[in-house]
Simulated scan of single mutants.
Amino acid sequence: MSKTTTNEPRSPLLYDDDLPGPMSLHRLAGLGAVRQLDDDSAYLTEDAETLFGRASILAALKPYNTVACAVSAAWVWLGGTFPNTIDVISASHFRAPVHGRRVRVFNRKAPDAHIAAIGRLKTTTPARTACDLALLPPDETPRREVNDMVCALMDSKQCTPQECLAILDENRYWPNAPRARAFFEYIAPCF
């Protein structure tokens, strides 16, 4: 008897129904084998250890035909704890949470030069991600967290302050652009 296989990639998400019992997901999370998104879903911890794995996870979560940006894109590039929001570039509005997370929409232009494709995920490049982070309003995400993510992107040599300043020069009318520009000018001598 031959086993039928498909070319469909496996979903990086696990659901309560995929496991033998109602407490299995919580038990696996307690053991560190999975990281829970909400009470009914999780992803394998080992999938979050690689760039492609994180991209696969986020591709399964974000709304169709959107581009991951800001904190979500930073998670793809850097890893760490899964963000509390799913940040996307889109002209649409998304009111329903996805796996317990609010979809935060940014309606900014994103030329092809600012977008990277990793597997099925379209996400902003590291430089554009750093810009999006610096453009976040102070009440949306704590400044220290934002600064740490931007500096981690710079430290990992994925982008430079000069690249970010060039993106801001092209888009000087974005909200919070003067503050973001001042930030990148301030940190430029460190990189």
Score class of each variant (00 low, 15 high):
138 P>I: 06
159 C>S: 09
189 P>T: 12
153 L>D: 12
176 N>R: 14
1 M>F: 09
69 C>L: 05
130 A>M: 11
179 R>G: 15
79 G>Q: 09
8 E>G: 00
1 M>V: 15
46 E>M: 06
35 R>V: 13
167 I>F: 13
129 T>G: 09
146 V>M: 03
152 A>E: 03
178 P>W: 14
155 D>G: 02
74 A>C: 15
139 D>F: 14
181 R>M: 12
124 T>I: 07
96 A>N: 11
51 L>H: 04
110 A>F: 13
29 A>K: 08
153 L>K: 12
143 R>E: 01
149 M>S: 12
51 L>E: 02
136 L>A: 05
81 T>C: 06
31 L>R: 06
114 H>S: 08
176 N>W: 12
189 P>W: 02
54 R>Y: 08
163 E>S: 02
21 G>W: 11
134 A>R: 03
11 S>N: 04
27 R>A: 08
64 Y>E: 04
77 W>K: 10
16 D>C: 10
76 V>M: 05
89 I>F: 01
115 I>K: 08
57 I>Y: 10
40 D>G: 11
81 T>M: 08
179 R>M: 14
184 F>V: 11
172 R>E: 04
64 Y>H: 12
103 V>T: 11
168 L>W: 14
50 T>V: 00
54 R>M: 05
62 K>C: 10
32 G>Y: 09
78 L>V: 07
109 K>E: 06
14 L>N: 07
27 R>Q: 11
77 W>C: 01
155 D>L: 02
50 T>R: 14
15 Y>V: 04
152 A>G: 04
61 L>Y: 01
3 K>N: 13
127 A>M: 11
177 A>E: 13
108 R>A: 00
110 A>K: 13
159 C>P: 01
99 H>V: 05
49 E>Y: 05
101 R>G: 02
142 P>K: 05
89 I>W: 01
48 A>I: 09
133 L>H: 01
15 Y>A: 11
128 R>V: 08
107 N>T: 14
5 T>L: 11
46 E>K: 10
54 R>V: 00
1 M>H: 13
118 I>M: 13
115 I>S: 01
186 Y>N: 15
78 L>F: 01
124 T>G: 00
51 L>P: 08
106 F>L: 06
98 V>C: 00
29 A>R: 08
59 A>C: 05
173 Y>F: 10
140 E>K: 09
68 A>M: 11
86 I>S: 03
123 T>V: 12
94 F>I: 02
44 L>S: 03
177 A>D: 11
152 A>M: 11
174 W>Y: 08
151 C>T: 13
21 G>Q: 07
99 H>G: 10
41 S>N: 07
40 D>R: 14
81 T>K: 10
4 T>I: 15
136 L>M: 04
62 K>M: 08
185 E>K: 06
43 Y>E: 12
86 I>Y: 04
59 A>F: 01
125 T>V: 04
32 G>T: 10
103 V>A: 00
25 L>N: 05
73 A>D: 02
84 N>Q: 15
96 A>W: 07
184 F>A: 11
151 C>W: 10
186 Y>D: 14
173 Y>S: 14
188 A>Y: 07
190 C>G: 03
60 A>R: 03
177 A>T: 06
190 C>D: 14
145 E>G: 12
191 F>L: 04
43 Y>I: 05
137 P>Y: 02
76 V>W: 13
56 S>G: 15
12 P>S: 01
144 R>L: 13
187 I>W: 02
146 V>R: 07
90 S>R: 05
58 L>V: 15
185 E>W: 00
